Simulated assay, not measured.
Amino acid sequence: MLSATKFFRVDDLTVQIYNSETEMAQDAAEIAQKYLQDILTSRDSATILLATGNSQLKFLDALIKLGGVDWSRVTMFHLDEYLGIAADHAASFRRYLQERVEKRVQPKQFHYIEGDALQPLAECDRYTNLLKAQPIDLCCLGIGENGHIAFNDPSVANFQDSYSVKLVKLDAANRQQQVNTGYFPHLENVPQYAFTLTIPMICSAKKIICLAPEKRKAQVVKQMLQESINIKCPASILRQQPQATLFLDVNSATAAFLESELTS
């Protein structure tokens, strides 16, 4: 197992920094693998929430290549989906996870949010009932450039949300990020609304692995770790989650920590 170059806590949140995104992803994958193995040793099944986006690519690939997990005993959910997008759309999170995870590991079941459901509010209820049927063992997260986790943008984030799944309007920064990272050709192509698991639902997971590599995440990582815990940076709530670990590479950590601190 690789070791972080720096390891510390910010409030209740564990933070680990690595020399590269590849090392970060590999170590996070090994930690997730061991955790799932331990669960499946003591129980018949495990349940995980998966994120999408570029921050997850190397991690998911490393986790699958490690092997050693009986995926036929693992039930999977995902964190969010665009409203009105079909499962075969190039930017669909269902397609992302079907191609990168489900087809490769064949889990016990993968419950998807149906982004093109004819009754979106009923879809929220359906997915809520599925989520509440069992505890969530592991949640794998990313952080948006505006500080969102899942699609909980600052404008709609609620740390005491009474819902488990809800419909939200995406803010301009979030929609632009989807263009910048190549998932849509133009801003007008990005849906304005989406389904998202809420922050309390995410924080109910017994273990949270949050990956935030790359220079473009540096400023939001700094805000998350150094400013107050509030909905202006929804990811800051992870500082109140002792079951959570934030994985950074040196590029995403540079704004929050001096270079001398990173190597000390």
Rank of each mutant, 00 (worst) to 15 (best):
Lys34Asp: 08
Ser3Met: 14
Phe8Thr: 01
Ala235Thr: 02
Lys108Glu: 06
Ile199Cys: 03
Asp88Glu: 12
Phe247Gln: 04
Asp137Arg: 10
Gln119Asp: 14
Gly67Asp: 07
Leu79Asp: 00
Pro135His: 02
Leu187Val: 12
Glu114Val: 14
Ala194His: 02
Glu214Leu: 12
Gly67Arg: 07
Glu145Ala: 15
Lys206Thr: 02
Glu99His: 11
Glu145Phe: 05
Asp249Gln: 11
Asn174Glu: 04
Tyr82Asn: 02
Asn230Gly: 15
Met1Arg: 10
Leu130Ile: 03
Val74Ala: 07
Ala172Trp: 04
Val250Pro: 05
Thr128Trp: 00
Asp27Met: 08
Leu170Phe: 00
Tyr193Asn: 12
Asp70Pro: 03
Leu248Asp: 11
Gln98Gly: 11
Gln223Ser: 14
Gln160Lys: 13
Asp61Cys: 00
Val156His: 06
Phe151Cys: 10
Thr41Ser: 15
Leu225Cys: 10
Cys124Ile: 06
Val250Asn: 15
Thr5Lys: 15
Gln176Glu: 15
Ser3Asn: 13
Tyr163Ala: 14
His148Glu: 01
Phe110Ile: 07
Val15Arg: 04
Tyr35Thr: 08
Gln16Glu: 15
Lys166Met: 08
Asp137Asn: 15
His78Gln: 01
Asn230Glu: 13
Leu170Lys: 02
Pro242Arg: 05
Ile208Met: 09
Gly68Gln: 10
Gly182Tyr: 02
Pro200Ala: 07
Leu57Ser: 08
Arg94Glu: 14
Leu13Ala: 02
Ile231Ser: 14
